[in-house]
Design a binder for these strands. Structure first.
Lengths: 142, 142
DNA sequence: ATGGGTGCAAATTGTTTGCAACTTA
DNA sequence: TAAGTTGCAAACAATTTGCACCCAT
């Protein structure tokens, strides 16, 4: 399914669905969770999937633009992504001590965001909410 | 006031309130809005305020840790900050077309975030909500 | 066949660091 | 005066790019 979406997206932009782009897409959707470009590369290399670092860096923005992938957690020095298609939207609680990422979702939150957009006459597309603090394991031991 | 807070913060950590740190603090609080390290440096240089790039990069994390400044808008390749002391907390609507940043605030939103933290037994410290989309001027013309 | 795409390695860019000289508490 | 701090320039790390060859359409 995500293949179709990506193919369509590329087609509309006059871009080509190359083997490499396919492979990257597949890899991104092969597992659930966050990833970064370097990790993606390593993961693919370890499975003998031929792809260059440059192609990964060139493909990720396309995946984001197509709406299949989102950039999240931009705190670290390198970019983190997660695929969103076929996933419920969710937000993140990030532990400042151990780095744990807890996914949360609240319909009320979504509703309020819509409200905020309406009030500002703003057409919301995507959003990111990150709450940083201490997870249940770390909050005692500070 | 922010000077006192910073001084106190540094004191507790056994750090010193140097001229450079003062100057950076003053500059950060001299105007309202977002900034990045490079811009801060240029702004200071243009007013003949003596400071090195290294000091800026070394001081900003201290300002963040002290709670006087927050890191926001982590989409771009470089870090963006804004001072928060003496400011209401707010979130951001970011226009994907013209780059406009609209500040919004909703008490309901804050309340729900607290609720989310409680549900996950998480001790929230700070949070960032960014909604990306199109502002009132750009949403028509797409 | 044509225009986009790839891999590589070199280039860029934002940020960090080692070090000698200097300040602050 | 002891411990932290500065500025500089060199070092880093993540990402981007130029180019010659390659491959979807």
């Amino acid at each position: 399914m995500e293949r179709e979406i990506f193919r369509e997206f590329l087609y509309k932009k006059g871009l080509k669905l190359t083997k490499e782009r396919q492979r990257i897409l597949d890899e991104v959707f092969a597992f659930h969770g966050h990833f970064d470009p370097e990790g993606l590369l390593k993961s693919m290399r370890s499975r003998n999937i031929k792809v260059s670092k440059a192609s990964i860096y060139r493909t990720l923005p396309l995946l984001v633009e197509s709406g299949l992938v989102e950039q999240v957690e931009k705190n670290d020095k390198h970019a983190h992504y997660e695929h969103t298609f076929g996933h419920e939207h969710h937000d993140h609680l990030i532990c400042l001590k151990c780095g744990a990422v807890i996914e949360v979702f609240s319909p009320k939150l979504e509703a309020i965001q819509d409200e905020l957009c309406r009030e500002s006459n703003f057409k919301g597309r995507t959003h990111t909410l990150e709450i940083k603090g201490y997870c249940c394991n770390c909050k005692e031991t500070r």
